[in-house]
Design a protein around this nucleic acid. Sequence first.
RNA 1: GCACGCUUAGCUCAGUUGGUUAGAGCACUUCGUUUACACCGAAGGGGUCGUGAGUUCGAGUCUCUCAGCGUGUACCA
Length: 877
Amino acid sequence: MKELPKRYEPQKTEADIYKIWEKSGFFNPDNLDGEPFSIIMPPPNVTGVLHLGHAMEDTIMDIMTRYQRMNGKKALLLPGTDHAAVATQAKVEKLLIADGIKNPREELGREKLLEKIRTYAENSKTTILSQIRKMGTSCDWSRLAYTFDKERSLVVNIVFKKMYEDGLIYRGHRVINWSVKGQSTCSDDELEYVERPAKLYTFKYSKDFPITIATTRPETKLGDTAVAVHPDDKRYQKYIGQTFTVDVGALKPLNIKIISTTEVEKDFGTGALGVTPAHSPIDFAMYEQQKASGDPIDIIQVIGKDGRMTKQAGTNYEGLTVEQAREKFVAYLKENNLLEKEEDIIQNVGTSDRFGDIVESIPMTQWFVDVNKKIPHKNRSLKELMKEAVSSGLNNDDTKKINITPSRFEDTYFSWINNLRDWCISRQVWWGHQIPVWYKDDDIFVGDKSPGDDWVQDPDTLDTWFSSGLWTFSTLGWPEETIDFKTFHPTNWMQMGRDILFFWMARMILMTTYTLDTIPFKNVYIHGMLKDKSGKKFSKSAGNTMDPIDVIAKYGADSLRLSLTTGIAPGNDLKIYPEKIESARNFTTKLWNIGRYINSSADNYTEFTNDTTLSSADAWILSELKRVISQITKDIDEYNFSHASEILRTFTWSYFADWYVEIHKIEKNDAILIHVYKTLLKLWHPFIPFITETIWQEMFDEAKLLMITKYPQSSDFDMQLNENNNFDLIQELITHIRNIRATFKVPTNTNVDITIITSANDYITSQKTLIKKLANVKNITMQKDDSLQKTSASAVFKNVKLYVHLANIIDIDKEKQRLQDEINNTKKYIDNVKKRLASEQFTQKAPAHIVETEKTNLNVAQNKLDKLSENLKNLNI
RNA sequence: GCACGCUUAGCUCAGUUGGUUAGAGCACUUCGUUUACACCGAAGGGGUCGUGAGUUCGAGUCUCUCAGCGUGUACCA
């Protein structure tokens, strides 16, 4: 056994330990045996550096992976990164603009800009991967993947083609969300709603128009082609079907048709809605509905892709920004006395989450995934597949059912699916998978490569979530039937933040159920968001960010890992702040110092076997350890990482360090001390891998890495525990002495005489040193009383009488009072239990084991009461 | 508007099919400690589990009401 250095300095050892692990080859499941267990890492975006959220995810995944690996599984944690299409391009463009390039796309052109983004992405990737290593994440680097590399791009194209041929991907002219700043579409999920003050204008198109309408976007009214009213609305019924021509200054006079739809609420506003098909998704839906019913209305686009008014808006407006046009149109309404009301309201506007500008609704031709169409040969839609996978299991096969932890997110998931509209997958940014579609005149070809000369590829790229959705199988070698794919798919476990539940989890389920007719993962664990001490989200603009790398430099990776996994519950948010990390760091120091104690005092080290003689304290610590192991195994299996580390901490610190180590100073059972310590290193390893592996190697010189030792099982501790285990009675004795000492505030260096009257004189004498040590007692006097019956060791202990004589005690009433209070409380409790046991309703209706428990409780309390009364009586002597 | 979540000790939070006298960490009080550890030890105080009702032999846990906070989502004519 070798000496540990005085202090644990993670900064000096962590990098080396990681290298040893990596070199050993055991991050790679090919070098492991057993049942497969797989986790595919949610790929971080290559938009910069990792934040604390990633650190938490890496920790959770690594705990799971190391735990499974130590339990003899062929464990795979597959790492990767995400090219993050729009997000990355937006980020790089922002940087370029800050560098003085006003319009990167125009000035650099496609190829040069892509090159800049590629360089940025590669740098960012390198940083991220090194950060993942610093966290101690035990992932298999030989299988590293990237959403934008060759293999993954191939999968994207194959799946795109398959969906196209099945008619699930189509090209359509629809109103979509358009970011003027980013010059690209956004899916509905990529919108962030921001509240801001706005004005609501109530007006008429013209003096002789019969219906008043209201709007917050007057400039779009230049493109109105209808007014919608409720079919039952008596005020407007007579106008339904009529068309009015009004001239509001647009290029041509507007033909406004009065249509009816139940979607309009009679009591809201004026009860009538101006319909602008080109610039509102709802209005566009009405436009399509009218078209389908054979009573079409017009569509007029008055806002262009550049965010300015189009020619259709009329010469007065053409070229103006939306804001300018609004002002002008309102001025026009005022001049002509058409404006009836102008009120201030708070409005929710959708902004682009990446570019930050308010999105415009504009009709454009884009690619969509149809979520409602029946899939050929499956007779179900994508929506239905997505529902099945989480409710009954795909194809009603419960082995193909996804379990979501915590389960409440299932409801959120279903309600999201119910409201799901077709998914717009084309983006006008350049960074991403270019749509594998080629055009020549009116011909369309879908495939990897151009089918010949003069074909032009669609310039658009795919939504980044398209490739992310394929992640669980694109990383495992599909479309080839590789060993990896057959072994590790569907993956066992997936974790993610609840913020990307829809973005990502839903898309993975969609893509996998459709493409492979199976599920992407069996279990998904949803974690909450990290917040600072005051409950605010971490963000650069709030200036409250904490860089995980700084934290690691200061406290070590283990402290960070531990602080990110204590006090969390699945799906709930977690607050993180320095005090919490310090507390974790203090624990790692404690664990280290126990090792240093063993260094200094365990000199008769013999291997622990089932024949090792156990003292009562030994038996106690082993039985506690057995209990702890079965508890934490259960906890990790149920993803209660926080609870597992909490009880392990209590055991390590309060039971092992504060009790057993103190006892060892007297009893010196080295075999047990070391055995328990080594077991603890194994149990802690998934949570704090660096320090445990460091101690393991430095102290014990083991040939085998701690990382691949067998995880302790509670059955390992099924030895015959001594029936005459009196440890709890000694504990009681000591606690009692401590109580008395505390009541009278006796300093340690004051001589205390204790007289213990017992028939088991010899046994107590043998424990005298222990009692002295743990109760801070200087002298113990023994007095034999043979009148006490000696039947067995435990019975002897129950007959212990304890007298405490303290010098200079004046206030004996204080101790009497304390005892009296405790007696009263116990009496009250006994009364309650008795009452419950006496009640027929209880004994008849409560389950038998509860009744039994209550009876035991009653006995325990009764014994306690006897003991307390006796102590009180003794105090009167 | 709708949905979901939260409300437990001064603070941050656990509390798993309802079942011992409701827990932890930090903070606090008192006492101690220089030989594994002050990044320490012992003892202690502190909670009508947000409000009000209900179901039950039994409710922090289940149901309903209300209040405060948070998140998501829709509408926004």
